[in-house]
Amino acid sequence: MDFRAVTFYFFAAIMVFAALRVITARNPVHSALFLVLAFFTAAGLWMLLEAEFLAIALVLVYVGAVMVLFLFVVMMLDINLDRLREGYWDYLVPALIVAGVMIAEMALVLGGRYFDLEGMPQPAPHAADYSNTRELGRLIYTEYVYPFEIAAVILTVAIVAAIALTLRRRKDTKYIDPAQQMKVRRKDRVRMVSMPLEKPSDD
């Protein structure tokens, strides 16, 4: 077993453990943190497959942004664990069916004649100066430019829709426009009054 294989099994073991803990941990915050560990280890595995751009993008997007927001929400929710856990036996049968179908599909793909190990020879490793990032960029912006742009438009529409759905204009907020704040000058706020030091006598 060479160093590469040792690294692979090391990462794979951590990832399987983390993935199992995601669904078995009692505390939802622990589950979310184990999911972060699983993502990070997956990035390590992708790095082994010479897909460094995908690996870094996974850490940047999922670990760095998505899971932070996810954790943010999970921490603020006061989740009643007992209510979440009831109905285990009711859901068991449908869950087993879904799991069985998934296992059957995976077995078909992995065990099929066209997908065995001989059908997929190990790709030749690239030279050290091969830039995965550059190749991906070239493909995305030339060959797959329309699917890429369509995906971008769909995501933008989704963002606009999400904001439009949750936007409400409150009349009672004391919001101050910073531009107006900046425009204020001293003469708008302070009035200098010249007063005699002593009250002049009446007589």
Binding site: E52, F53, I56, A57, V59, L60, V63, G64, A65, S131, N132, T133
Partner: peptide, 11 residues
């Protein structure tokens, strides 16, 4: 991919 690495790690 140094710049990407820095962004990913600091995030």
């Amino acid at each position: 991919a140094g710049l990407l690495y820095v962004m990913a790690i600091t995030s």
